[in-house]
């Protein structure tokens, strides 16, 4: 069975032309894609819009049908009870286990804050975080 703590993130590639980001936002709106978390990484030539959505597979197909380059990436969602403390705990256990955090971004939910992180060993990281008593987001909770 697939690990229920692996969250599928959509990585949408956006070229740095005026209006491209607005066009992507338009597509998300058109298909009523519910965005739970968002992050934009940029190089000088293009950007990557990282999004956590409620139905990633469907959203993936919808976005692709508009000719936009999109990839699925596995991330982990960490529940943040008290932000600075939780962030330190998570980073600390992963660091000690030699797992590298490639990037992360926060999302403030109605009841709780989340930190989505991309690591170089997703399964390994999930095991270690759980063992350390850190609460993770389940796929069904998105």
């Amino acid at each position: 069975m697939e690990n229920e703590n692996i969250i599928t993130q959509l990585s949408i590639f956006v070229s740095n032309e005026p209006g491209r980001l607005a066009a992507i936002a338009g597509i998300l709106k058109e298909f009523k894609i519910n965005v739970k978390g968002l992050n934009l990484a940029e190089s000088s030539e293009f950007g990557i819009l990282r999004a956590i959505v409620d139905e990633p597979d469907k959203a993936y197909d919808n976005i692709r049908s508009r000719g936009v380059i999109v990839k699925k990436t596995d991330v982990i969602g960490i529940k943040m009870k008290d932000a600075p403390g939780s962030l330190f705990d998570a980073a600390d256990v992963l660091g000690k286990a030699g797992i590298n955090i490639e990037y992360g971004y926060a999302y403030s939910g109605r009841n709780l804050d989340y930190l989505f992180v991309r690591v170089d060993d997703t399964e390994g990281a999930i095991g270690i975080l759980k063992k350390a008593g850190i609460e993770l987001v389940k796929r069904s909770e998105i």
């Binding site: 590639f13 070229s15 190089s43 000088s44 030539e45 293009f46 380059i69």
Partner: peptide
């Protein structure tokens, strides 16, 4: 060198 997205 500038690496671009496909189709740019």
């Amino acid at each position: 060198v500038k690496l671009l997205l496909p189709g740019t």
